[in-house]
Every structure is written in C-alpha cells, then in structure tokens.
Design a protein around this nucleic acid. Structure first.
Length: 480
RNA sequence: GGCCCCUUAGUCUAGUGGUUAGGACGCUUGGUUCUCAGCCAAGAAUCAGGGGUUCGACUCCCCUAGGGGCUACCA
C-alpha cells in the first residue's frame, strides 16, 4: 500500500475561514487515522491578492486549532519548497515539455480579444470556450508575434476525445463528457502557472496520495486529469467534500466576510470546540456521541462517512459545543485564556483564586469568553446603580434591608453557607421568605434581579462590599 | 446558456427495501430554584414534488422543481 500523503493547500488571500479549516481538519484527521503525513502547501500564484502576513496568519490559525503539519513552508521536508511562488521553474519546465510534445501551445490573444470572443459565443448560445485561434498558428506566425513583443501564455490542448471519468471517494463515479472544456491556460503571460496546472504538477511531485478538497474543485478535476495524462503522471485519489454554506446558502468566501478562525479565536472560543463542531459538518461517526476529542476523532475518522450534500454553518450550535467544552472540560483549564476577557476593574479587585471561582460560576453557560463581560455585573466591585426593577425591589423593603445589614455584619464567618443561613434566619424572624426575601437583597447588592446564587455572589464580593452596597441602597430610599 | 454535484424537521445528521423514521442544536411546556442560567422530564416539528420498479419504498430508476458549484491569464 502506498504511503498516505495528503495536503492542505490554502492560498494566502485572506483569513482562514471555517470552510478552509474544515478541509484542513479532514485532511489532518485522514492522515493521522491512516498513519500518513499531512503536508501544508501555500498556493500563492495570485500575486495580486497574496501576502506574507496572510500566510503567517493562516499558519497561526492552523496551529491554534491543533492541526500541525509534517511538511510545510516553515519547516521544510523532502519535497520542498512548499510555496508555489518558489516552484515556478518546475511549472515552466512542465509547460515547455508539453509545448515541445505538441500538447500545448503559446497563445498571444489579449484579454480584450478573449473577452470579445467569449461575449460572441455567449450571444450565439455556445459555451464560452476558447476558440483555438492560436493553436492554428504556424512557426513563422509565432516567431513574428514574439519579435513583435506580444505577451504570450501557454494553453493546454484538450484532446478531442475528452470524456473523462473520476472515481471520487465521496461522489462515486463522476463523468465529465467530451467538450466540457476548451483549451485552457496553464501558464499565464506573467510566467506563473494557473491553479489547475500548479496543483497537478505539485500533487504529483509531492507524491500526494489523496486529494481531499472542497467540492468547488470537482469540475476542475477533469483538467487536472488531462494534465496528469499528458505528463504521464499517476493521478492521486480524489475526495471532494461538500461545501460549507453561509446563512444565505451560498459558498462561504473570504471576500464576503465569511466566519473565520481568527475571529472565533479572539472572541474566546476554545479551539477544541471549533474543531469538534467542524468535524461534524459533512461527517459523522457511527453512534450518537457528538462531543469527541481530537484523539477520538482521529480514531473514528473515515472518508466513507463523509456526506455528499452541503451544510450550513450554524453559529448557534457552535455556541453549544463551546459552552459544553468550557463547562465540562473544567473551567480552570481555560482560565488563562478567559482572564483577558474580564473587565479591568474586576481583575484588579480580586485575587486570581477568586477570579477562578467567578469564572467557574459564569462557565455554567458561556459560549465564548467575550460574553464574560455580559455576565460579570454581579461581581463588579463598587456600588451598583439601582434603576428600574431593581430600584422598585429595594424601595419596598426598607425594614428587611436594614435588618439584613445587622445580620450580615455580625459574626466571624463569611462563607456562602453561613450567609445563606443568616438570610434564612432573617427571613424567619421577619416572616418573609422566597422572592420577597431574596429579591430586594439581590437587587441592593447586584443592581439586578437575576444572577447566580446570591450567597455565592456575596461570599465572593466580600462582606465590606456587600454591606456598602446595602447601605447605599438604603440611603437611596431615604432620599429619592 | 452549458456541464457537474446535491435534496431526511428551522439547522447539523443517522438511516443502504419492511423502523412508532433515531440522535443533537434551537424552540415549547413542566419540575428543581430567590431569580437567570444549568440540570431533569415531556412535547411540537422531517423523508422537495411526480412517475415508475416491487407484495412493500426515505432507501433503487426516471422526470420535474429547488439549491449549490464550475464554466478566468482567481483558487
């Protein structure tokens, strides 16, 4: 059995969006499951849109997700270089060989001419394929054009019997009928290869055994098959995985601001949650379990359970995964990641151990760390502003609040249990219980009618802070 | 326009000729609770449509519709 070698081949023209991340993940899982190698190749042949910053951003995102590669531009390998911009000699060589063998030819058509011809064919209701003008040029004509300094690209000659079949891991047999494509450019006039040519050359040169990529490349595969043929190379096996669609049901694309990994990272989603969610988009293991670690995913991942229909990226479910990881995985594990999301005043007011306790309480339901700020109010130091419902709740409970001041001020112990006990005693003494008992105190202490267990909140806030808040609330009642 | 791919609840999916069509998110209701959340329990909601094949179709075939992709000197 041939060694399993798969690659993820992003072009550094934007952030790594979740579609790309899912493709990388499937490749990575497949490689790990099969004991093969995972290669990272940068497809930066579109010089206009590519950038080094974007490239390193993609590398960072992959590392953050935990998808380390065995060979790549930053760490080398036996099949390098791993950046297409550094492999142009190979593409040029391949193109020259095809020209010499009469399987490709130089094309001198200008962009305007091409555009005009395409338009004509469209009007005539013909597929907008290249008409082969330059294929018919003889040597003399070519020489003339060259000395005239006309820019030349290289076009591949599509054989007349161009029906091709593909046995795809996910799609099964796909038939591309003859006449589907016209002669296509393999080397642009700027000397750089087009996607289909570079991908075919590199996949062969890098001994890639399986190409796992998005379905958007399915139609293009016929071109790559013809290139392998012409060059006498053995094609890899293909698996075209279904696209991830946006809410509008169209392909997720960088240009339309698709959800990207970096964004989720900065918003404080655990990487495991994203990986776990993404793994279940277009794939599912046998059984009902959905929370799976990376190791478990590796163990279960098989290409034959990849679905063939596209799926929509649903942030709501991602939120659920994320909250599950934070809660079940143990909040303390994420404390360092979460701390930067705490408001400054809260971080300054408590020692780390207290912050950990606060985080544990909030982690009961926290889709992302960026939501901490929305839930932190009860723990903010200082005196809460009383407005609306909270003000009303306090206003009707003067007696209760001043009694609570005494009850909470006495005694040595300050723990959730002792605080709970004192509130209960207080209630018994005043013959108040339930909401009537807790809500006014809660409102005075936190400024809100909702929040985590009140005794716990008070314990963490500290006696002084709690008493001050109640005194202030009382004062507010006296002087409305 | 041409070609290719896809079609189970709002969403992610299981299901490979005979199932009460299973699970998850979300939603609704109830329980627990000072409240929110959580947790527990219950519930509503799906095989795009039409033809075949078959004793029997979600499952196989065809057509239609819908969605998506490709059709670039983008990837």
């Amino acid at each position: 059995m041939k060694e399993v070698r798969v690659r993820f081949a992003p072009s550094p023209t934007g952030h790594l969006h979740v579609g790309g991340a899912r493709t990388a993940l499937f490749n990575w899982l497949f490689a790990r499951h099969e004991g093969g190698r995972f290669i990272l190749r940068i497809e930066d042949t579109d010089v206009e849109r590519s950038s080094a910053d974007l490239e390193s951003g993609i590398l960072d995102d992959l590392m953050w997700l935990g998808l380390a590669w065995d060979e790549g531009p930053d760490r080398g390998g036996a099949y390098g270089p791993y950046r297409q911009s550094e492999r142009v000699a190979r593409y040029r060589e391949g193109a020259e060989r095809l020209v010499a063998e009469g399987r490709a030819y130089p094309c001198f058509c200008t962009e305007e001419e091409l555009e005009r011809k395409k338009e004509e064919r469209r009007r005539a209701n013909l597929p907008p394929q290249y008409d082969g003008t330059c294929r018919r040029l003889d040597d003399a004509a070519r020489a003339r054009k060259r000395t005239g300094g006309e820019a030349e690209s290289v076009r591949f000659i599509v054989p007349p019997d161009s029906e091709r079949r593909l046995d795809d891991f996910v799609r099964g047999e796909v038939v591309f009928p003859a006449g589907m494509v016209g002669d296509f450019v393999i080397l642009r006039s700027n000397g750089l290869p087009t996607y289909n040519f570079a991908a075919a050359i590199d996949d062969a040169a890098m001994a890639i055994s399986h190409v796992i990529r998005g379905e958007e490349h399915l139609s293009n595969t016929v071109r790559q098959i013809m290139i392998y043929e012409a060059l006498g190379l053995e094609p890899p096996r293909f698996a075209h995985i279904p696209l991830i669609l946006g809410l509008d049901r169209s392909k997720l694309s960088k240009r339309h601001g698709a959800p990207n990994v970096w964004d989720f990272h900065t918003r404080g989603y655990p990487a495991e949650a994203i990986v776990n969610y993404l793994a279940f988009l277009g794939w599912s293991p046998p059984g009902d379990r959905e929370m799976l670690s990376l190791d478990e995913l590796v163990e279960k991942f098989k290409l034959d359970r990849v679905s063939s229909s596209p799926s929509i990226f649903d942030e709501v479910k991602l939120n659920w995964f994320s909250a599950q990881y934070v809660k079940r995985g143990g909040a303390r594990r994420y404390l360092d990641e979460a701390l930067p999301h705490f408001p400054e005043d809260v971080r300054a007011a408590y020692p780390r151990e207290r912050l950990a306790e606060i985080f544990e309480i909030l982690a009961e339901n926290l889709p992302s760390f960026s939501r901490i700020v929305d839930e932190i109010a009860p723990f903010r130091p200082g005196i809460p502003a009383l407005a609306g419902e909270a003000r009303e709740a306090v206003a009707g409970a003067r007696e209760l609040l001043s009694a609570s001041l005494a009850a909470l001020g006495e005694g040595e112990e300050w723990s959730a249990a002792s605080i709970g006990g004192r509130i209960k005693d207080l209630g018994a003494r005043l013959q108040v219980k339930g909401k009537a008992l807790y809500i006014p105190i809660r409102a005075a202490v936190t400024g809100s009618l909702h929040g985590p267990d009140l005794s716990r909140v008070m314990e963490i806030r500290g006696r002084e802070s709690v008493l001050r808040a109640i005194r202030s609330a009382l004062a507010g009642i006296e002087t409305p």
